[in-house]
Design a protein around this nucleic acid. Sequence first.
DNA 1: TGTACATCAGTGAACGCGCGTTCACTGATGTAC
DNA 2: TGTACATCAGTGAACGCGCGTTCACTGATGTAC
Lengths: 233, 233
Amino acid sequence: MPASASQSARARVRVELEKEIRDAARARLGLEGPAGLSLRAVARDLGMVPSALYRYYESRDALLTALIIDAYRDVGEAARQADASVDDQDFARRWLTTTRAVRAWALAHPQEWALIYGSPVPGYRAPSDTVAAALVVTSTLGHILGQAQRAGRLRPIGDLPIPADLSPDLEAMALLTGTVPEPVGVASVVAIGYVIGAISLELFGQYDNAIEARSSLWDAAMTLVARTVGLEM
Amino acid sequence: MPASASQSARARVRVELEKEIRDAARARLGLEGPAGLSLRAVARDLGMVPSALYRYYESRDALLTALIIDAYRDVGEAARQADASVDDQDFARRWLTTTRAVRAWALAHPQEWALIYGSPVPGYRAPSDTVAAALVVTSTLGHILGQAQRAGRLRPIGDLPIPADLSPDLEAMALLTGTVPEPVGVASVVAIGYVIGAISLELFGQYDNAIEARSSLWDAAMTLVARTVGLEM
DNA sequence: TGTACATCAGTGAACGCGCGTTCACTGATGTAC
DNA sequence: TGTACATCAGTGAACGCGCGTTCACTGATGTAC
C-alpha cells in the first residue's frame, strides 16, 4: 500500500469523524440552542471523552463556526437546486419555487436557521470564512430578479425616491448578487429581506395563535412581494 | 401611621427593588444574552446575595418573563406615542412615523428586541401573560392601515388570489388588530411582518458589510411597503 | 517481508469556574393591644 | 406612648451540577529502510 493511499485512509476516517461530530452537535442544537451548545454533551452522545474532540475542533467556537458554514451551504444548496429545477425563463415560477424551498429548508432545520439568521450568539464572533457561504441564498434570489430585469420582464415600479447615500450600497449589492440598481434595486433588497425576515417570524413563534394557514400565507405574500418588484405572477 | 399606609410603605420599597432588579438584569442581557442571564450575576451587580433575589422573583424564568413583558410594553408604548403625535388623518405620515419609532426603539434596545423577537430561549416557555403585551405594536400598525381603509384612503390593490384556508386567519387578525380582511388583509400582514422582520435582519447583523445607509433604506422600504398595501406616500 | 521508529487517536484525571436553588438564621420593620 | 409579637428582607453556607480546556499517558496505525 503506497504511502499516499494509507495517508488518505487515515485522512478519510478523520473527515468522517469530523462529520459525525458535526451531526451530533447539530442534534444537540435542537435541545439547548446555539448558546448552550456543549462540547461535553456532544462527546457524551458520541461515546467519547470530552478531550478527544480537541483532536478535531480546537475549541467550542471552532465547532460552532463549522456548523454555521454547513448551514449556510445547505440552505444555499437547497435554493440553488430549486432554482435550477425550473425553466429559467419563467421568472415568476423561479421566484415562487426558490422561496418556497428556502422556507421548507428552514422548517425542516429550525435550529440551523436560528444559528445563521437568529439572534447572534453572545461572545461568539463569526470569522470571515462564513461570509462567502452566507451570500448564496441572497445571490440566488438576486439573480432571479436581475435576470428577469435584463430579459425585460420586470415592469417599471414607478418613481421611488432613492436617498443619495443608499446608491453605493445598492450598486455594491448589484455586483455581489446580480440584482440591478435603482429603483428596482431597493425593491429587490426589500423582497429578499422579506423572504428571510418572514421565515424567521414564523419560525420564532410570532405567528403562534394568530396565523394557522402559513403555507397559504407564504404563497400569497410571495405573489404580493413579486408584484412589488414588478414581476407579475 | 395607619396600618394601610405603612403596609404600602413596605410595598413601595418592594416595587422599587423589583424595578432595580429588572434594570440590573436588563443591563446583564447585553453581555450574555437571554439564554445566559444569570441570577447570581444580577445579584452581584446589585450588591446582594443570590438567594435574596428569591424574595422578589421566584425563579430565573419568572424574571425573564418580567423582562419580556416590560419589553413588549415599552416598544408598544413607543409605537403608540409616535402614532399619537401625528395628525390622525395623515395615514402615510402615521405609517412612516410609527415604523420609524419602532425601529428606533429596537436600535436603542437591541437585547430587549432580541428577547421578544429573536430566536426563542431554549427551555423557556412563555406564560400567557405575555400574549396581550405582544399585540400592541402589531395592533397599532394594524389600526393605521384599517383606519385608512375605512376612510377610503387605500387604493384597491388589484386582485390577489387568497387561498380559502387563509380567510379565517385574516378575519381573526382583523378583529384583533383593527385591520381589514382580504385582499388588503394579506397586504397588511405582509407589511407589518416586514416591519418586524427587517428590523431583526438589521439588528442581527444581516446587513453587515452590505448595507450602510440603513435609515435611508428604511424610509425607501417603508414607502414601497406602504404602496404595496395601497397607501400612497 | 520484517523490524525500529514516528505519528496520531483517544483516555482519564484534574484545573478552576459559575450556575440555580434550598435552608436555617439574624435583625429590622411593622402590627395589635 | 410602650411593650410583645408577627412579618418580612436579607445573609451565608451548602447542595449537586455541568462546563471548557490542559496535560501526561497508552496503544494502535502508518512510515522508512
